[in-house]
Design a protein around this nucleic acid. Structure first.
Lengths: 335, 335
DNA sequence: CTGAAAGCGCTAACAT
DNA sequence: ATGTTAGCGCTTTCAG
């Protein structure tokens, strides 16, 4: 201290010495173990406060071979979807004294492997991943851990342990039916980010397939290379309508793009749904509160996070459980 | 194994035995230490793969007294702001092999104390907190750790180590000036969530004070008890305009509320800015892409996260450094 | 109710 | 280039 060194972080031993008790007693007090006399507790608390002692859970975790960390692997933070899922996850974890350790993959499976390795090295009590389509290398590593694995977003596939999500293919087929029911005959599709989110591709393909079955095939699908955003939605919609004026309805990969499309139409004086019908995906608040309420497929994002975290905690995850939370089609006034 | 027990997670020792080498050699291979023969590396890699070995960083961290975890304490995940900050943080951390461990406080300082304790117990290499106004108890604990502390969002105050943010009071005074310059004389303010975000209160007070100085005092401030949302913005705007028809401009606590106000006006046939001028705060994409571009104060959220993480890593954090990233007033077409 | 001893899995320091 | 030893800070087990 005198020579300018920063004070080292206090340990149990320091507290024990100052309090004049054994290390194990300090440990017991810090963990609120039962059968502790008030006198002992008092001495320990005073000493701990004096030293600004913070328990070292790294050491504790090593000894007990258990942590309060939960690995959470998400593809992106750049739209409303995954923050809401994370919010749901955190809301449950925090009630159980657990902390999320976060990995973002940017939809890159190489990065996902790194991230999973990194997170697993912290001995989390469980792991939440996005999607059912991890690489074989990732699956292998995951299954070597003795921890519950919950995969979120999708249910159409085989989970490693448990899955909580919705049926994206079914949702897209329903979208196709909806457009046809409503009398649309020249449907188009708009996506973004080169369809890196695999769920987008699945939805587009299912949408396209059902339209073809119903005899009103997709007029065009425009997949922007740019990241999904309101701005991108506006740009692509403008381009699409310019090159394909016959299009009478557009299904978007998500609401951000759809709202961009809506804004473009409003600025250009195009009537919604008179000139073109718009259908989004997700049901974010902006779309629902817009002057023309966006027709969309509502997905339970916060709930999905909560259920995923609950499954982890209840350790029901190893049962091949699939929780399909379903979606709700909100017809809005944009169709 | 035969009796149905799950296989224990493999350790260095297991790998070493299988490969017929020492534990330290396995350790060196796993950490890509220099001076390893190809023969040894090969043996170790094969054994590790066979066992599905994942390094146990808990043990490593205990030994080396250092981790690759960074504690990140945020108040909320429920609007665009903090996810963007987190995205910025993560983008820098991931490039350095660091993982964020997350704590959400819900703007509750009791919860913040718990969360900080919890996160610090994992020996993070640094901690990022929101705001400059932590309780004394929290500050005390933080200063007992020998790790860099970066506080984000605010710069008007005294940081524990370093701060990265913007001057909210100044921004609100500029907002007041802007309205007056533009000829507004009956300004109002709309906030939400009972002003739990302390920065909202600071902005409102600064806004109000400057308006008073300029001789055009605030007509009314409506603070909803509900959480901030587009929906809440619409509702409160409707109520405010009904009870205070003379109001000619509204400054909102954030863009979500302001966009709600905009949508309400569009639905009600009120002209923006003819009947009422709208000014938001944050500069989220929806507002900028809206048919009437929302006037707002652009805040650099992603950049703030990046700078905060960079400061942590560079260990410049202990220098009392204050990084004011500034804001940009975007006049839009709603004023 | 309190304490002493042992060791979790790994790696720095020191051999060889 | 590889191995041996010791110990990080805590908590489980076993004694008292």
């Amino acid at each position: 201290m005198q020579n300018g060194k920063l004070p080292e972080r206090a340990t149990l031993r320091d507290v024990a010495r100052l309090a004049g008790v054994s290390e194990i007693s300090v440990s017991r007090v810090m963990r609120r173990a039962p059968h502790i006399s008030d006198a002992l507790r008092e001495k320990v608390v005073v000493a701990a406060n004096t030293l600004g002692y913070t328990p070292n859970r790294v050491a504790g975790a090593l000894k007990t071979a258990t942590s309060n960390l939960v690995a959470v692997v998400l593809p992106s933070m750049s739209n409303e979807v995954f923050p809401e899922v994370l919010d749901g996850i955190e809301s449950v974890l925090s009630g159980h004294g657990l902390c999320p350790v976060l990995g973002i993959t940017q939809y890159d499976s190489g990065r996902e492997l790194e991230v999973v390795r990194e997170l697993l090295s912290w001995s989390p009590v469980g792991i939440i991943l996005t999607g059912l389509d991890q690489d074989a290398a990732i699956r292998r590593i995951l299954l070597h851990q003795n921890i519950p694995i919950v995969q979120i977003m999708d249910v159409e596939g085989t989970p490693l342990h448990a899955a909580v999500g919705i049926a994206h293919g079914q949702a897209a087929r329903d979208a196709a039916e909806l457009l046809i029911e409503r009398g649309y005959r020249k449907p188009a599709y708009i996506g973004a980010w080169a369809e890196r989110p695999s769920r987008s591709r699945i939805r587009r393909q299912a949408f396209e397939a059902r339209l073809a079955e119903r005899g009103h095939p997709l007029v065009t699908a425009q997949i922007s290379a740019k990241k999904s955003s309101v701005q991108t939605g506006a740009e692509v919609t403008q381009a699409l309508l310019a090159t394909h004026p016959a299009v009478d309805a557009i299904f978007y990969a998500n609401d951000d793009l759809a709202i961009g499309g809506m804004f473009h139409c409003m600025k250009s004086g195009l009537a919604i749904p008179g000139d073109v019908g718009l259908l989004g995906f997700n049901g974010i608040s902006f779309g629902q509160a817009a002057p023309i309420q966006l027709a969309t497929i509502q997905t339970p994002r916060f709930e999905m996070g909560k259920r995923a975290a609950s499954l982890l905690i209840e350790k029901n995850a190893a049962k091949g459980l699939i929780v399909d939370l379903g979606y709700r089609i909100s017809v809005g006034s944009s169709l």
